[in-house]
Nucleic acid binder design. Structure first.
Length: 877
DNA sequence: CTGCGCACGC
DNA sequence: GACGTACGTGCGCAGT
């Protein structure tokens, strides 16, 4: 077997990774994106290439021997961003853990080290592969040396052999240098011959083969201008050649034999990945038996496995973890319960726990305080088993989310590791994932779950202190914690669904879909998979020759906005649009909902209270926050949502323009406040102010545009986003936004101030002190910075609206209880609450619900709530 | 199993 | 000039 040598251009790959990936942070605030990208690439190479020898070359410093030839070499190049520089030492640490040699040499560039070693490998008859993002390296390609260049992203590469180069670039590896010498390279400040680009350079080299030959026969060059340019800049060209030529005789101290690759250090790598927060990469490290070593390194925790719950095991202020397998706590079963307090840690197997009246009594005792992770999950799980858990006064999940919603993993092990408590493994390591998900044998299970309870107990103080330091204690204690119990109630109650009605709609849709599909196949002249944009594209844009409006990464775009522009060009288009619309209803809403109805005809969604960056809730399995309403056809889905009891109605109450009212309040804009106090139609008012016209002069078109601008303000979209939604140019969109801000100077001031504030503090807050960190607000990358700026303007608006409706839910929940009404909340859809109630309570509710919602906070503008009721959700409009 | 294109809501 | 652009969830497809 021949040896295989892999040579990596360290700086180039780190650069690529840095710009290809979002600026990730680990829990210590260190940027890790370049290291992460580098790591994925290394893992891929090791998995795919099986190298016997390997080395990563780095540039040694700013000055190189090339600067002697040409002082301005690489002049004008942007300084390496500090966010990247700080990652380079980590990168070296990473390579050490991988046991991969790395090397740098004063005055030489990584290219030269690679070139030298590549030639040595070649002479030894080894297989050599060079990996870089720099096309200059292509000059090294030969029969034994291939060069892989990164394409988009970081793990995608394009591998060049001599044949592939001929085919793709029409030149040979030797000619790469001459090509560069003619073209120059602005990023390295290499002059080349002005006016000669890639096309001309290739043409010249095809004709004359080498640079020397071009100048030797310059008289034969066609084109007077070109000839002149070549003659004037001959010297530049030859100097450029010198600059781009990679040195293959660099005086390096290492030999290729010394850089053998023997495999990585599993322990070191594991530890490093954990430190860096690369949890997803840990299971790509090979060696199952080595995993055991990590296991063994966890400090012992003494756990008592309980076969009968005794009162002596239970105490006030106890951490409680109820563990289940899988995500959906409406159907999953409990695998075990652990409790931890200052006197001990216990594991109670599921069957023991559920049969114990001692435990039940303790769980239901309000005075016995419990600390948990995810109170909602624990509450719903216990409700399903007839236990009404009370006395939860700490929820680690909610606390962690409030401290930093941007953390992507709010599970006990992740939070624990972030806070420096590493004596627990990740769920994925214990349970596996996907199809391999399973409960381990009891010792491992009880140990893991017990550790969770132990950690909840241990971390409580730290987390509470963080909340207090952030001035978020009230947000946590008076808003999110009560809310989570209310949500548990709503989820457990569920919404009733008229299954027959859904099925009926499904049958009707099925017939129509079949017919439309038939029509489309006839219009297309062939059958294909209509649900595949990849197959639809060629039919529309090649076979039917329709104009291409937009492309996606993988082919033609066939999205609705594209198709709408083609609607009058071919009858097939409107059929496709209809097919898509109905197909969506069928698959997502009819079939999707039917799949999750339980045997009592109810649907139980799960509200995720610890996910969105703004403080809103989200809803899953099913998502009941995106049931169709805009188009009549879809809206009919709502007819399938019904009250759970005969003689009851659904009652829906929604805030009118809550975000714009919040904006008026936060920005304290006189005109906007006035508009709401006068109960004006806000979009018409905006149109009057933006277009400087009187009310009776506002056209539908103007109102529509004003509405889109308001929408943009509320959602923090860019001029680009606004231009898309209005079908106008970016410039026009920008004009609209500017005129809006001129009309509402208070808003303008708010926008300026909040961005400044965010820059200074690093985060923005809402009315109730919800936080969102915006590390990108000081980024030198325009896109990242702009996005962060829009987020700074938008999050306080959306987040405050979220705060308000959450508070309203709490107020309403307790008011309904106090008034001893049977009415109960079922759903929340961001600015709207869905309630079910017996008919005789409706008159009370009309007064009470709107009142509670409107009075929950007091702003500089009134909050206005509209409501409606009916026999189905559809009718509550 | 994952990423993509698409579509639904606020 | 920056080439990607509110927040979410879920579906089917296609490639691994």
């Amino acid at each position: 077997m021949t040896n295989k040598l892999i040579l990596i251009d360290g700086n180039s790959i780190a650069y690529r990774a840095f710009f290809a990936l979002p600026l990730l942070n680990n829990d210590k605030g260190v940027h890790t994106n370049a290291v992460y990208g580098f790591t994925t690439m290394l893992l891929k190479i090791l998995e795919e290439e099986n190298p016997t020898h390997m080395l990563v070359a780095f540039d040694a410093g700013k000055t190189t021997f090339r600067h002697k030839t040409y002082e301005a070499y690489k002049g004008g190049r942007q300084k390496t961003p500090p966010e990247l520089s700080e990652q380079l030492p980590i990168l070296r640490e990473l390579l050490d853990a991988f046991n991969i040699s790395h090397y740098e040499l004063p005055l030489y560039e990584a290219d030269d080290i690679i070139g030298t070693l590549a030639r040595k490998g070649e002479q030894a008859n080894w297989e050599v592969k060079v990996i870089s993002g720099d096309r200059d390296l292509l000059q090294l390609v030969s029969e034994r040396v291939t060069v892989a260049l990164t394409k988009k992203g970081i793990t995608n590469v394009e591998t060049y052999t001599p044949e592939y180069m001929k085919e793709k670039m029409e030149i040979s590896p030797e000619q790469v240098i001459d090509l560069k010498a003619l073209m120059g390279d602005s990023s390295d400040n290499i002059p080349g011959v002005p006016g000669v680009g890639e096309k001309t350079a290739v043409k010249l080299l095809k004709q004359f083969t080498t640079l020397e030959n071009v100048f030797a026969n310059v008289q034969e060059v066609s084109g007077k201008k070109l000839k002149e340019k070549l003659e004037t800049h001959q010297e530049d060209a030859f100097m450029s050649k010198e600059l781009v030529t990679i040195h293959v005789d660099t005086p390096i101290e290492t030999t290729i034999e010394q850089i053998g690759y023997q495999g990585y250090d599993v322990m070191k790598l594991n530890q490093l990945f954990r430190d860096l927060g690369f949890h997803s990469l840990i299971n790509r490290i090979e060696g199952e038996e080595d995993k055991k070593q990590v296991e063994d390194t966890l400090p012992d925790l003494h756990v008592t496995i309980v076969d009968q719950v005794e009162e002596s095991m239970l105490a006030n202020h106890t951490a409680l973890v109820i563990e289940m397998l899988g995500e959906n706590y409406h159907e999953a079963s409990i695998v075990g319960i652990s409790i931890a307090h200052d006197k001990g840690v216990y594991f109670i197997p599921a069957d023991v726990a559920l049969q114990s009246s001692v435990l039940k009594q303790w769980l239901e005792d309000e005075k016995q305080k419990k600390m948990v992770f995810d109170a909602k999950k624990a509450t719903v799980l216990m409700k399903r088993h007839g236990i009404d858990i009370k006395g939860i006064d700490f929820d680690l999940l909610i606390a962690s989310y409030l401290i930093n919603p941007a953390e992507s993993h709010h599970d006990i092990p992740s939070i624990s590791h972030r806070l420096g408590e590493t004596s627990i493994r990740y769920d994925e390591e214990v349970y596996g994932k996907g199809a391999k998900l399973q409960v381990p044998e009891q010792d491992a299970l009880s140990d893991h779950i017990a550790r969770k309870a132990h950690i909840v107990n241990k971390l409580k103080q730290t987390v509470v202190q963080q909340l207090k330091d952030n001035d978020q204690w009230e947000l946590y204690h008076d808003l999110e914690l009560p809310l989570t119990l209310i949500l548990a109630d709503m989820e457990h109650t569920g919404v009733s669904v008229d299954v027959d009605r859904l099925k009926g709609m499904g049958e009707g849709l099925q017939k129509r879909l079949a017919q439309i599909q038939q029509n489309i196949y006839e219009l297309a002249g062939e059958t294909f998979n209509l649900n595949s944009p990849k197959q639809l594209g060629p039919i529309l844009f090649e076979k039917l020759q329709l104009p291409v409006i937009k492309k996606t990464k993988t082919g033609y775009s066939t999205s609705a906005d594209v198709l709408e522009q083609l609607e009058d060009k071919h009858p097939i288009i409107s059929e496709i649009l209809l097919y898509r619309q109905l197909g969506k209803l069928q698959s997502t809403y009819i079939e999707g909902l039917l799949k999750v109805v339980d045997d009592t005809g109810k649907i139980h969604t799960r509200f995720n209270q610890a996910l969105t960056q703004t403080g809103r809730l989200s809803s899953t399995e099913p998502n009941l926050q995106n049931i169709p309403i805009r188009l009549e056809e879809g809206r009919k889905i709502r007819q399938a949502f019904i009250p759970s009891q005969k003689g009851w109605k659904l009652f829906a109450a929604d805030y009118s323009q809550i975000e714009l009212r919040v904006l008026a309040h936060i920005a304290n804009d006189e005109k906007l406040i006035q508009a709401f106090n006068d109960h004006e139609d806000i979009h018409t008012k905006t149109a009057m102010d933006v277009f400087h016209v009187e009310k009776d002069q506002v056209t539908d078109q103007m109102r529509r545009q004003a509405k889109a601008v308001n929408f943009g303000i509320v959602y923090g979209i860019s001029d680009f986003g606004l231009s898309q939604s209005l079908g106008i140019t970016r410039k026009e969109a920008k004009t609209f936004i500017d005129r809006y801000l001129q009309s509402y100077p208070g808003v303008q001031t708010y926008m300026d101030d909040i961005v400044q504030d965010a820059k200074q503090k690093g985060y923005v807050t809402t009315l109730m002190n919800r936080r969102r960190y915006l590390p990108d607000i000081t980024s030198r990358n325009f896109n990242r910075r702009s996005f962060a700026e829009r987020t700074a303007m938008n999050t306080p608006i959306q987040g405050t609206a979220a705060d308000i409706i959450k508070k309203a839910m709490i107020d309403l929940y307790y008011t309904l209880a106090e008034e001893q009404l049977e009415a109960r909340m079922l759903l929340q859809v961001h600015d709207e609450l869905i309630i079910e109630a017996p008919e005789h309570e409706l008159d009370t509710l009309k007064e009470l619900v709107a009142n509670v919602m409107e009075q929950t906070v007091s702003l500089h503008v009134p909050l206005v709530v509209d409501y409606a009721f009916g026999d189905t959700w559809y009718d509550a409009k």
